[in-house]
Amino acid sequence: MKLAPLNTVGNAHDDSVWTAAWVPATDESPPLLLTGSLDETVRLWNPEGPQKLQTNTGHCLGVVSVAAHPSGRIAASASIDSFIRVFDVATNNTIATLEAPPSEVWQLQFNPQGTILAAAGGGSASVKLWDTAQWQLTATLSVPRLEGLKPSEKTGSKKFVLSVAWSPDGRQIACGSMDGTISIFDVTRTKFLHHLEGHNMPVRSLVYSSAPLDARVLFSASDDGHIHVYDTEGKTLISSLSGHSGWVLSVDVSPDGMAIATGSSDRTVRLWDLKMRAAAQIMTGHTDQVWSVAFGPPLTTDVRSCLLASVSDDKSLSFYKYA
């Protein structure tokens, strides 16, 4: 289990790069990487090279999230002005512009089936679900307050939904909020199931395990510097990983489910061997916050390895080979 640095694109954007997501391969193209930045553009990269394929404009204020449809043909990006732009990956034609005021938009995720786009709704304390056929708002999953807290309390305003993740079967959604609580929803019944506690600081990134037997295992990255491993069904904390000296901004799980990668404000990317509770490898290539890490699909040449991309406030984009 190892990360080997491949290449780094300095000044991949004109300003801080805040988000990245892989676009699955299509018949015409290999897997590509989408990145979004404070410079209000979304860019498309071919890791071969690496080569910049496209620069999409059309957002105002910084781009905070990008997500790709499982088909690899369409993608969505969201910015601070609370618009979601859905576009054709190949042509950059706008397919739809979504908004649900006054809800702002943070993390975006398509469900594994590609039928629903989930968007973390920030201050609206909810996750908005858009259907991908008509681009209509189909449901709003509202996060209830924790029992015992009166609405008038100041903490009430802190149920601010930042991050969202789909379970591998597409039935569950987990969302993380500013106060550190994670909420689990049953999507099919659009029902709130329960909270997962343990963090007390913003949870900016969530991901379900990709290992076949661990479908109910959820990884969460928080500003408290810890990565928690939860059993979403049993409502238990399986493990807590510490080691980052700053906020953990992003977490992603490897396709084989054996490792997770995290990016942190401490400028490092860490690879964690899930068999151990410590970081297996620490990459120190970036000179500023690492806002996002993303594992790509397995390589066609070697199914046991894949690419990892990391983007940072230092405007750069790095690729690594995970094997």
Partner: peptide, 16 residues
């Protein structure tokens, strides 16, 4: 113990 497996389900390989 920290270097040992800590996940119930992830007991696939026996390298450690």
């Amino acid at each position: 113990a920290k270097a040992q497996s800590s996940f119930r389900n992830v007991e696939q390989s026996d390298v450690s």
